[in-house]
Amino acid sequence: MMISVKNLKKSFGPITAVNDISFDVQKGEVLGLLGPNGAGKSTAMKMITCFLQPDSGTAVVNGFDIQNDPIKVRQSIGYLAEHAPAYGEMTVNSFLNFICDAREIAKGPQRKEAIERVLKLCAIEQVFHQTIETLSKGFKRRVGLAQSLIHDPDILILDEPTDGLDPNQKHEVRQLINKMAKDKCIIISTHILEEVEAICSRSIIIARGKIIVDSTPQALKDEHQCSLDEVFRKLTHKKSA
């Protein structure tokens, strides 16, 4: 078991963002977190990556508890946050070097290799010397993706990885995820349903902080006898009505 989430709960003032969710993810799985905006997908991810403290409950990532061993957890995770935050004034080169510093990838051939690998993987060689704030949205997101892959983590957590990309880039990112799927444990959040069908081996639908369905995309379609779009609408509408 690479990720095991147990009864996570988080509220912001009167709003309960994540209400008692539990799930497990194994190596080789690509888990899609689905849900309308504000359902609690990002909040759940922020807790698993130790950015936010849960109010109650916990998660065990790669054998480390998020409450007791946050640094070890962060070392085993590659995380792409929503909107792919980065330091705009840095060049892609210095930004990736900064991430290597933080991830303790030693200078020399090891770092060179790591950087060259992600440059190729994310197709960002051509902007290597450009400052990040001058990049287009698609490149920015791919730099964010490169940042999350640089230490070749076993666990990847990607918050809306294809948001803002054009159809070709979306396709490339999905292919990239598919390629990595078999020897990593990946969680992605999205509200693009075709994406779930294309890459996810399992999907969890969240609405108002609770898990409604935990199943495979195919099983969902079979069960409801309609497209994933309609399944999504049925399930999330009913609950929020």
Partner: peptide, 14 residues
């Protein structure tokens, strides 16, 4: 403001 704090504090940095 820029949200880069989320990047910084999900790296192995306390």
């Amino acid at each position: 403001k820029s949200g880069s704090i989320e990047l910084l504090l999900t790296l192995p940095i306390t």
